[in-house]
Design a binder for these strands. Structure first.
Lengths: 181, 181
DNA sequence: TCGATCATGTAACAGGTTACATGATTTT
DNA sequence: AAAATCATGTAACCTGTTACATGATCGA
C-alpha cells in the first residue's frame, strides 16, 4: 500500500519517469522504502488508471519514449488522506536473527564471515549517509522544512546503522573470527 | 524462504503443534520473525509434504486433534544447509519514513500523535525485552551456548528499540506535540 | 452469558521477487 | 568487443494479509 504514496510523494517533489523514480528509490530512498523497477512501473500504471497521476509521453529520437508522470489533484487528495492515517509498524523479519535460534547446527566460522560482511555493509552505508548529511544538511536549521523532514529520515538511517554496529560488537564476541584473508 | 527454517529451528528446540508455534512466534520470536497462524499452518503442511518434518496426530476427547510436528533427518540437513548460506539483509520499508517525504502535505499534529504512539510502543517493547533479559539471562556467561545465541537476538531487539527512541528524541523536535490528552 | 482459549483449517487477494524481453548508445 | 546506461515493459511465482469457518471448554 505504501509504495503508491511513496511514488506520489516523490513525484510531487518533482515529476519524473519510471526510470528516474527507480534511481531515486535506489539512492536516497533506499533507507526508507525499497522497490524495484518492475514494481514501480506496475504501480505507476495503476496510479494512472485510477487517475492519481497524469502522464505525458515525450518522444525521443533513437531512444524509447519517456513517460513523465505528475501528481493529479485526485492524487494529492489521496496522498493527504493517507498521511492522516496512522500506519502500522512494519513487522520484523530478519533471517540473520533466525539463524541464532538454530543452536548447535550453526557453524561459528560461517557465522563470523556473515557478521563481518554485515559490518562492512553497515560501515559503507553509514559513510554514504554521513556524506549526504555533509553535502545537503551541513546546517539543518537553515534548510527549508520539506528537506528538514527528509533529513530526519536520513538521521534514522544513520542511527539504525550505528545500532547495528553496536550489536555487531556484541555478536562478534560469540563468533570469534579466525581472521583469515 | 526463511519462515520454514525458523519453524525447523523452533521445532528442533522442541517438537510442537502449529498452535504452540504460533504462540512462540508471537512472544519470544516476535523481534526475529513475524508470522501468523495461517502462514505457519500452510508452511507446516508443505514441510510435511516434503518430508522435512514428521507429524504425529494426538487424538483428544472433546478437543480438536493436535498434530505434533518434529524435525526429520532430511529437515535437519536442509536446515544446516540453509544456515551455511549467507542470507541477504531484509529491505527497509517503513511507511512512517515515507511520510517524511511528503513535505507540506504532512500535518504536524497528526505526525506528533503518531510519534507519541511509536514512543509508547518502543518503551513497552523495551520493558518486555528487559524483563526477558532479567528472567532468563541474568548471568549470560553461565547460560548454555544455544540460549546465549538467543540472548544475542534479544540484545538486537533491545538495541533496536533504543535506537528508535533516540531517533524519536530528534523527530519530536520537528513535530512539537500540543500535549492534549 | 459472553468472551477468551484451545486447535485446526480454506480461500481470495495484495504485494514483492525473479526471470525474460527488446534495442540503441555510450563507456571501458 | 563487451559491458553499462537509457527506457520500457510482461508473466509467473512466492510470500504475507485478511476474511471466513468450526466448535468445545473455561473463567468472569
Amino acid at each position: 500500500m505504501a509504495l503508491r504514496y511513496a511514488l506520489l510523494a516523490a513525484l510531487q517533489e518533482e515529476p519524473a519517469t519510471g526510470y528516474e523514480l527507480t534511481q531515486r528509490f535506489r539512492t536516497y530512498l533506499a533507507h526508507v522504502w525499497n522497490a524495484t523497477h518492475q514494481q514501480i512501473y506496475r504501480e505507476l500504471g495503476k496510479l494512472h488508471d485510477e487517475g492519481l497521476v497524469t502522464a505525458e509521453t515525450i518522444a525521443q529520437s533513437e531512444r524509447p519514449d519517456r513517460k513523465q508522470y505528475r501528481v493529479s489533484e485526485a492524487g494529492e487528495t489521496a496522498l493527504t488522506q493517507w498521511l492522516a492515517t496512522p500506519q502500522p509498524r512494519p513487522a520484523t523479519r530478519d533471517p540473520l536473527l533466525v539463524k541464532l535460534f538454530a543452536g548447535d547446527n550453526l557453524d561459528a566460522r560461517v557465522m563470523a564471515r556473515e557478521l563481518a560482511e554485515l559490518r562492512q555493509q553497515c560501515e559503507q552505508r553509514l559513510a554514504a549517509y554521513r556524506e549526504m548529511e555533509r553535502t545537503w544538511f551541513r546546517d539543518p536549521g537553515s534548510v527549508p522544512r520539506r528537506y528538514r523532514l527528509q533529513y530526519l529520515a536520513l538521521r534514522r538511517g544513520i542511527l539504525g546503522a550505528q545500532s547495528w554496529l553496536a550489536w555487531l560488537d556484541e555478536a562478534e564476541r560469540e563468533f570469534p573470527s579466525t581472521d583469515d584473508s
